[in-house]
């Protein structure tokens, strides 16, 4: 099975967000960058699919700065075979431009499966997988928490409000991974050693501006000071009134 996994380098989820002086971006000083957790599910799924098929290749694609080589190495240490860094210092604000660059890199090859995480934990865009599928004219299933593949046919489950949707689709296809799809493996010492020697190709890319521009990044508004409605059961009447009339949530 020939599988591509597209990954992103993102600030660790524990990052304390500090805005840089340009007022538009994250101050990266002291920030720890990791492989996007949803992409870890995608890498793990790719490895399991390849292992099950008994042969094939898992190639990792990443759009990002030179330092994203480390992110790719993480996936290689897990067991992926090779990496491609689409190197640029600036991730486009318009997800469509990102998708075009990734689709162009994937296009020359034929893949049985192209995997993404369902979203990146920095920009919450959850759409690159779908856009790439569209650009490559492939069927696409998003936010998958269970996946079965038999020959050229896939069955996937995804959570929707109040239920689980079961989908059937033909391969090749684009699938985006949600939490629950699998438990990513712990890196192995031998994997880490082997990763140092696996091929990692660097291709500089020039993203276009596209139709979106980030104009500001700001801390969220502080919650306004709450109030103590009262003490004991006697305060419940007033609480319910406030929830109905002031907060309008009942």
């Amino acid at each position: 099975m020939k599988i591509a996994v597209c990954v992103k380098r993102v600030p660790d989820s524990e990052t304390r967000v500090k805005i840089s002086p340009d007022g538009k971006s994250l101050d990266e000083a002291g920030v720890k960058f990791v492989l996007n957790p949803y992409d870890e599910f995608a890498v793990e799924e790719a490895l399991r699919r390849k292992e099950k098929a008994g042969s094939g290749e898992v190639a990792v694609f990443c759009l990002g700065p030179a330092a994203a080589q480390e992110t790719i190495r993480t996936a290689l240490a897990m067991g992926a075979d090779r990496g491609v860094l689409l190197q640029t210092d600036k991730i486009p604000a318009d997800p469509y431009e990102t998708a075009k660059l990734i689709a162009a890199a994937l296009k020359p090859d034929t893949w049985d499966l192209i995997l993404f995480g369902r979203m990146a934990i920095d920009d919450y865009n959850h759409q690159i997988g779908s856009l790439v599928a569209q650009l490559l004219d492939l069927p696409c299933v998003t936010a998958v928490s269970h996946l079965d593949i038999q020959g050229a046919k896939g069955v996937a489950e995804r959570e929707i409000e109040g239920g689980i949707e079961v989908l059937e689709f033909p391969l090749p296809a684009v699938v985006t991974a949600d939490k629950g799809l699998n438990e990513p493996r712990y890196p192995a010492l031998k994997g880490i050693m082997a990763a140092k020697k696996k091929p990692l190709e660097i291709k500089p890319v020039q993203p276009a501006a596209g139709g979106m521009e980030i104009v500001a990044l700001a801390p969220p508004a502080e919650r306004k000071e709450g109030k103590i409605v009262g003490e004991g059961a006697a305060a419940v009447g007033e609480l319910v009134r406030l929830l109905r009339e002031e907060a309008k949530v009942l």
């Binding site: 699998n182 438990e183 493996r185 010492l189």
Partner: peptide, 11 residues
């Protein structure tokens, strides 16, 4: 050990 676990390594 769980399914995704990793055994100890000897160095």
């Amino acid at each position: 050990p769980t399914a995704g676990g990793a055994a100890p390594n000897d160095l």
